[in-house]
Amino acid sequence: MKATPLIWTGRVLSALFVLFMLGASIAPKFLMPEVATEASADAGVSASHVLLIGVLELIGTLLYIWRRTALTGAIVMTAILGGAIASHMNAGSPLYSHTLFGVWLGLVMWGGLWLRDTGIRAVLPLRTL
């Protein structure tokens, strides 16, 4: 199958999502636990849960990378992002920069998957009026 510009755009969006998750969210939870614990405390997340969240994010991200499990990974990551949104809502975080960041990240993740996977596009087609 020839990779079209649509598929390449999806791959780039997916790569940006994966790089962000690995670099800005997962790595700090494993490599700098005190920094991650402090940042998570502002959103009301217990210090004892930070490592577990990092493990779940890593599993979801790894599932998202492989084509056969990408849909499962996207579903897992959607659940995690939903939890982050709820945590920021409960903490009273700023709306656009913190609370809705999970929405923006989810749009990049699902957009990348939709663009790079013809099966997803077949199940979730864009409709014109």
Rank of each mutant, 00 (worst) to 15 (best):
T118S: 15
G112R: 00
P125S: 06
M1D: 11
M109R: 01
V12S: 09
T9W: 09
G112P: 00
W66D: 12
V18E: 08
S46T: 09
P94L: 10
A74N: 01
R121C: 06
A41T: 10
G44M: 05
A74G: 03
A84P: 00
F101G: 01
D42G: 11
V123D: 13
L51S: 11
G92Q: 13
L124D: 02
R68C: 10
L31W: 09
A86K: 07
H98N: 14
S25Y: 05
F30H: 10
H88Q: 14
V18A: 08
Y96E: 14
T37W: 04
L56N: 03
L113R: 00
G111T: 05
G23E: 10
T4P: 04
L6D: 06
L22S: 09
L126R: 12
L19W: 06
W8Q: 09
T37M: 10
G102D: 01
L63D: 02
A84D: 01
L129R: 14
L56G: 04
S14C: 04
D42L: 11
G119R: 14
V45W: 06
G106C: 04
E57T: 06
M89G: 14
L95K: 13
G10V: 02
R116V: 08
L63G: 03
L81C: 01
V18I: 15
G73I: 01
S25D: 13
N90P: 10
S97A: 14
V35G: 03
F17N: 02
L124V: 15
P125W: 05
I75M: 10
A27L: 13
A39N: 11
L19R: 03
T128S: 15
V76A: 15
A24N: 07
V123C: 12
A24Q: 08
I85H: 02
S87Q: 14
M89A: 15
S48W: 12
R67H: 15
A43G: 03
D117K: 04
G44R: 02
T9C: 11
T118W: 10
G44Y: 05
T72Y: 12
I59L: 12
G82N: 02
P5K: 07
R11N: 14
L19Y: 05
S25W: 03
L113F: 06
T61I: 05
M1Y: 11
T78P: 02
I59Y: 03
D42A: 10
G10N: 02
P94W: 05
A27V: 09
A74C: 06
L129Y: 13
S93G: 07
G111W: 03
K29C: 06
R127P: 05
T9N: 08
L126M: 13
T9F: 11
L95S: 15
I75W: 07
I65L: 15
K29P: 02
W8V: 08
M21I: 08
R116I: 06
R11Q: 15
E34P: 05
A70N: 02
R67D: 15
T128I: 13
K2M: 09
W8G: 00
V18S: 04
L63S: 06
G44I: 04
S46K: 09
P94S: 10
A79C: 13
L16H: 04
G83C: 09
T4I: 05
G112F: 00
G60A: 12
L126N: 05
A74S: 04
L16K: 04
G54W: 02
A36I: 05
M1P: 13
R116N: 09
S25V: 14
A41Q: 13
L115Y: 03
D42E: 12
T37Q: 13
A91V: 07
A36F: 06
V45R: 11
D42K: 07
